[in-house]
Design a protein around this nucleic acid. Structure first.
Lengths: 242, 242
DNA sequence: CGAAGACTTGACTTGAGTCAAAATTAGTGG
DNA sequence: CCACTAATTTTGACTCAAGTCAAGTCTTCG
């Protein structure tokens, strides 16, 4: 593992030194010289919730690292039905490696900041840096595990269990800075609208809303404002996931 | 890309020379010496439909390559609900790389033959052979794409569309040798029981059966025997997938 | 031939969807 | 700061697709 030594290395680009996910994302595997080279081509951008970062069917020209915020990956069928196929959190790598075309669209679910880098630049570094390829393989395997867990949730769970699973996912994946934790109590703001949640869970917004109400009356969660959730006891929530 | 030259190379192990997927699976990336070394530790096994190849929660000791047949990956909830999270076909690599424990179970859906290899052996070769890691990354990315496509199917499609999607998947993924193709007509035997199909689609066997009947009466498919399916026109089937 | 397993069909129930309306919240401009 | 509008969320009444339970039929195999 590379140490924080390079923080004092004058070769490391200024933007990178200031980057919150510098030591957690893919950049952590890069040498100072690779980072310097790559940083000449990167561009950090901020986006409000609801902006399209990558569109389905578009030619892939760049990848990105999520610096903060939540990104939803989704697919829209011709007749308008929409399904969110995954959520990504900082410092995930964004974009389908080695593909010519995107097969899903990526949209900011909350306000986000990303660091875009050209497809070619990354792919060139990969060929010379097995560590980078390895970390990308690890992330891809993790995403595959999560996708399969989600298949179980979509295929075999009731609406109530689905919503509980979703809340559990958010409570455990949100940046620690956005989560308050007093003893076993967890407090956070939902990064998604009810419509997004419905599209993620394969439900309608009405059903999602009813399950929120049910979880509240069963005291599994407290809803202090629409998006503001308190989970008094995470293990109770987990039991509700089925 | 390595050429078929090594077929005449006496260093290549006999079992590997006879292996049907030798040039398509992960072994295609190995040098003669790596293959020779690995083959000392591999063991080919045959299994009838319904045998457990890897069990959920078990310590991972080996990986495998599928030589022929279909393997289903599934998860069983405590209350007995089951969900198939993926199907794998020859020459897929089987097993969760780098994990200590399996998080899903793998079972032969049809009769299968696999080539098992010790976890340690593969992981050692990976560290010296970036080509192998690359091909594994490519397979993992492909599986992730498929898992996400499946999430769309589970989350947003009707029972009829789900069954049509399943038939389309099988028709396009089965080994060509098990598929007969006369002009646009496709004929094959289903490698899964109705119960497996139901667990894959998040439905009940009764609903799956009713959708088969409906597809038959709508002339999208012909069912000549329970498992024997004729798709007169693949594009008609595809339209039915929604 | 008989029994067990796999699959289909029918009658009824139920959980989630649909449509409509009300309530809440957020945003805007006076 | 408050009224007004627009968007989001909740709630209610009703419908319908898929689930459940129960027979019945077809296959396979000893």
């Amino acid at each position: 593992m590379e140490q924080r030594l390079d923080i004092h290395n004058s070769d490391t680009p200024k933007t990178c030194l200031a980057c919150e996910v510098r030591l957690r994302g893919i950049c952590a595997t890069l040498s100072s010289s690779q980072l310097l080279e790559l940083s000449k081509h990167t561009r950090q951008t901020k986006h409000q919730a609801g902006e399209e970062l990558i569109s389905d069917g578009e030619k892939v020209n760049s990848y990105a690292t999520i610096i903060y915020g939540v990104v939803k990956l989704s697919k829209i069928l011709e007749d308008g039905r929409q399904q969110v196929v995954g959520l990504q959190f900082a410092p995930d790598f964004l974009g389908r490696l080695f593909a010519e075309q995107n097969s899903f669209c990526a949209e900011s679910a909350s306000d986000v900041q990303i660091c875009r880098m050209p497809k070619k630049a990354i792919e060139k570094i990969i060929t010379n840096n097995p560590d980078l390829e390895h970390i990308l393989l690890e992330q891809t395997l993790k995403e595959l595990d999560e996708a399969r867990e989600w298949i179980v949730t979509l295929g075999r769970k009731s609406a109530l269990e689905k919503v509980a699973c979703f809340l559990h996912l958010i409570a455990t994946h949100l940046d620690p800075e956005h989560v308050q934790q007093n003893q076993c109590e967890i407090i956070f703001d939902l990064p998604l609208t009810r419509a997004d949640i419905a599209d993620f869970l394969g439900l309608t917004i009405e059903t999602v809303s009813r399950q929120f109400t049910k979880l509240r009356t069963e005291r599994v969660i407290e809803i202090t404002a629409r998006r503001h959730i308190i989970v008094p006891n995470l293990s109770v929530l987990k039991k509700t996931c089925g």
